[in-house]
Design a protein around this nucleic acid. Structure first.
Length: 504
RNA sequence: GGGCCGCUAGCUCAGCUGGUAGAGCAGCAGACUCUUAAUCUGCGGGUCGCAGGUUCGAAUCCUGCGCGGCUCACCA
């Protein structure tokens, strides 16, 4: 015999037990045990009852779950099992189960196995609600040991790569994803109540558009056609507004072929919604309402703590134009706000941004905003009227055509939402697409490689005056669950692939 | 892509200025009928991320590579 690693040794131990099980009861992966209640239900109903009441009822319960702890005392033992709803303690007694079953329990059961039990409730001397097991079956034999019971699993790489183990062992991780689910349901509920229709538009686009980002490229064999995973659903959703869906939303994945960080995952979840006959100002009100609703349901308050910082999300939120913001937070003198030389010199002196020299005033103002202002916007702030050059799909402001009727919502220095009154002038839209194409020719890879003429055609049929908004769901969940990294709110974040030979 | 940090038993971690590796949990054998990190006795378990180099000798020092984390850049 060659030496075994401890892991294979433990797996072999468990496989041996599996074989014994097979001899005793046939195929060891049965699927005929039906629990008649959940652990949470049992707890809710009987947690408050005393031993006497429990004993008197004598009612039997069938529950199933994963074994999380085993404590053996000779002829009796406690275990803890966990199902989707919670944990409960089980009591195994030789005198109740009989020699054979008790030995099976003692010799074949491991932490991590999934069992089904039937028994009556009682309370231990320390008052813990416990099932006195009369019947039990091993439903699934776990061949691999769970991480240590006290420290659990903390290696982040293993937590992300083997999220199933993370979820078994770290209850708080599961909580995050349950909260994520609630947030998503609440958002749907909020919009549904206001007459929005949820739709699903393509995730494979012949022309990427709707945002500024590099796309993933894929290929359809039968049509022999390259396709791009969508970077945003925007242009399709606005086509639907043209088609008469006056209030639509889509809540799903976008894909951007860019860097990975604590704020970025290549595939991420976004909601975009569009409301005809509304303006970006209406959407600021709507956004405040939506967040207030979410906070009330999830947190019970509009004041939260994120990574140690107090954030007050009680509306109304500050509304400030981008130009005002750079005056206020970047100390740009009011009279220099559109002075190219001043802006260029400020950027070159005080930041690492490398300028090409071809930037417009609006682009320079936007750079100043990003470099000096964003990080200071801790409490929720609507920054409005972004320059038209950086807002190719937004409607021009009618008093000042150099800016757009647009806002971005910042919380804790992060962009959480982006919204604008939609550009519905097909001629202006075509001009802006052409401008983008010029940028592309100058090497800007984040701009679509060709003009989406079908979108222009749709505008020519007439897009009602509309406002639309996108909210990054992952970042919102991070905020509401106080998580520092986007990977903590995405079940399976993208990681570099590991070589197969490292499988163990 | 740059910088910094990490990678030691299945898990959580020790391991000093170089002398060929240790604990707890988990596992195995045994004792134990109210524990909840149960306890007690005994035992087994390692390609120290990988590959080179320096050295009489490397988990430890050096170089390269891999994977991960943070961060900067990039990402409106």
């Amino acid at each position: 015999m060659t030496k075994q690693t401890p892991l294979t040794e433990q797996i072999l131990q468990r496989k041996k037990k599996l074989e014994v099980l097979q001899e005793k009861c046939g195929y060891p992966y049965p699927n005929d045990f039906k629990p008649d209640t959940s652990i949470a239900e049992v707890r809710n109903q009987f947690e408050e009852k005393d031993s006497e009441e429990l004993e008197k009822s004598g009612k039997k319960f069938r529950v199933a779950g994963r074994v999380m702890a085993i404590r053996i005392f000779g002829k009796a033992a406690f275990t803890v099992i966990k199902d989707a709803t919670g944990k409960i303690q089980l009591f195994f007694q030789k005198s109740t189960l009989g020699d054979e079953k008790y030995t099976e329990f003692k010799k074949l059961l491991d932490i991590g196995d999934i069992i089904g039990v039937e028994g009556t409730l009682f309370k231990t001397r320390t008052g813990e609600l416990t099932i006195n097991v009369e019947i039990f079956r091993i439903l699934v034999k776990a061949l691999r040991p769970l991480p240590e019971k006290w420290h659990g699993l903390s290696d982040v790489e293993v937590r992300y790569r083997q999220r199933y183990v993370d979820l078994i062992v770290n209850d708080k991780v599961k909580e995050i994803f349950l909260t994520r689910n609630r947030i998503i349901k609440l958002i749907r509920n909020f919009l549904d109540e206001r007459g929005f229709v949820e739709v699903e538009t393509p995730m494979m686009h012949p022309i990427p558009g709707g945002a500024r980002a590099r796309p993933f490229i894929t290929h359809h064999n039968a049509l022999d056609m390259d396709l791009y995973l969508r970077i945003a659903p925007e242009l399709y959703l606005k086509r639907l507004v043209v088609g008469g869906f006056e209030r639509v939303y889509e809540l799903n994945r976008n894909f951007r072929n860019e860097g990975i960080s604590t704020q970025h995952n290549p595939e991420f979840t976004m909601i975009e919604f569009y409301q005809a006959y509304a303006t970006f100002e209406d959407l600021m009100d709507l956004t405040e309402e939506m967040f207030t609703y979410l906070l009330k349901e999830i947190k019970g308050t509009t004041k939260i703590t994120y990574q140690g910082s107090e954030i007050d999300l009680t509306p109304p939120w500050e509304r400030i134009t981008l130009r005002e913001a750079i005056v206020k937070y970047a100390q740009i003198p009011q009279e220099k706000i559109s002075e190219k030389e001043y802006l260029v010199s400020k950027i070159s002196k005080e930041t690492d941004v490398k300028l090409s020299g071809e930037e417009s005033i609006g682009e320079l103002q936007t750079i100043i905003f990003e470099e000096f202002v964003e990080e200071k916007l801790i409490n929720p702030t609507f920054v409005t009227h972004f320059p038209v050059e950086v807002s190719p799909l937004a409607r021009r402001n009618q008093k000042d055509p150099t800016v757009t009727d647009r806002f971005e919502l910042y919380i804790y220095g992060r962009e959480i939402a982006n919204a604008f009154s939609e550009l519905n002038d097909p001629a202006d839209q075509l001009e802006r697409f052409k401008k983008q194409l010029e940028d592309r020719e100058r090497g800007d890879e984040e701009v679509p490689p060709e003009i989406d003429y079908d979108y222009i055609r749709a505008l020519e049929y007439g897009l009602p005056p509309t406002a639309g908004e996108g909210i990054g769901i992952d970042r919102l969940v991070m905020l509401l669950t106080d998580q520092p990294s986007i990977r903590e709110v995405i079940l399976f974040p993208l990681l570099r692939r590991k070589k197969e030979e490292e499988w163990s």
